[in-house]
Design a binder for these strands. Sequence first.
DNA 1: TCTGGATCTACACACGTGTTCACTGAATTC
DNA 2: GAATTCAGTGAACACGTGTGTAGATCCAGA
Lengths: 216, 216
Amino acid sequence: MSPHVDPVVARDHSPRQEQKERTREALVTSALELSQKFGFAQISLRQVANQAGVVPTAFYRHFESMESLGLFLVEQSFSTLRAMIRDAQRDPSVFDNIINASADVLVEAVKEHKAHFAFVSRERLGGTPAVRQAIDHELNLFGSELAIMLGRLPNISNWTIDDVNMVARLFVRNMVSKAEEVVETPDGRTDLEDRIKDAARREMRLIVIGFRDWRS
Amino acid sequence: MSPHVDPVVARDHSPRQEQKERTREALVTSALELSQKFGFAQISLRQVANQAGVVPTAFYRHFESMESLGLFLVEQSFSTLRAMIRDAQRDPSVFDNIINASADVLVEAVKEHKAHFAFVSRERLGGTPAVRQAIDHELNLFGSELAIMLGRLPNISNWTIDDVNMVARLFVRNMVSKAEEVVETPDGRTDLEDRIKDAARREMRLIVIGFRDWRS
DNA sequence: TCTGGATCTACACACGTGTTCACTGAATTC
DNA sequence: GAATTCAGTGAACACGTGTGTAGATCCAGA
């Protein structure tokens, strides 16, 4: 049963693969850092390679082009977001007070993966067409997942699908907007972060309260 | 009283000034068109000059650099927005139903100045630092003006300043978001525009209704 | 009608870019 | 231990870039 195992997968702890993985990560990290300063669309393959301590041509051993690096960054960014929502679904306290919890979760997640969120919020509209489209796709996916999650809540389980979807979209937009704000706050200003959390909570309450009234 | 008049201002209909103004406008238009395709931060001085039918070095007769062109575009974009809000304030029907009116006004304004709004929404986060800062400043200004306008409405004249400012900020963010959506809809799809208008109205009602409940 | 100054042109330079190619040397396989 | 694989190297290329300088063209005011 062993000779048919893919060697790349089977031996991904060999020194060779480890080294490769390390420089690949260096490229990704460098790209994120440079993106934060100048925006991904303005940085060059050579800049990324230099910052990663590698010659430009070595870049091609890991990514076909800058565009494919950009798409990888999109995927990586949203995979952390998906993990976040998956964890939140497991936590029973989230169901008790989804608004307070999601504000906390969001702000903490953004702080922890600041570079990724900065990348997404910046390239969502400012990036190259391929990257923008990828982000748009992921955001729609996230909205759908959120809608399913919301639909399971007892107090809105009798809403129409359209209503749930609209609330989900409003929440996603709110989260995008708040994530942008958190990204732009300097590190260590927990006071500002708390204020953003408060605003997020109030606005989400606004949305659900308004919706309740709207439907009546 | 005549010899001391600034000749540039006094003779701005001379053939010389007319020609200059024409090529300047060509540069601005070209920059907007190219921005819409690739984003302002990715386009070059030479591309703009070529599209305007002018040699690259002639660019410097009109703008010091691409950055100053960018700042000019920001200013120009927001001047149309300011004109919009000024007109709206004069119209008495706006006070009767500010929500319906502002949704219409916004969508129409975006449609009419699509290139400018596309520029702003794209460069707000994706652009160079100088351009981003300029846009941020203008948006804050717009929020303040809107807060003043809202504060004059009879039914919220007894709100606290903080509350009015928060609603104004929510409205601005909503408008930015809706403007982004309108910019991304293809021309002629009035059905989609109407849907955006509806969503904008509903969300603004959401905000004010939620706020009323929130304060009680 | 002439002259000064402006708008614009033509050419040139140094530089950073993406991508190619043959290569090296260490890890991996046989 | 020999052969092979392959991440990373370094030189080279064609190209687009911002900007400097010198000169052409043409309108303005005397």
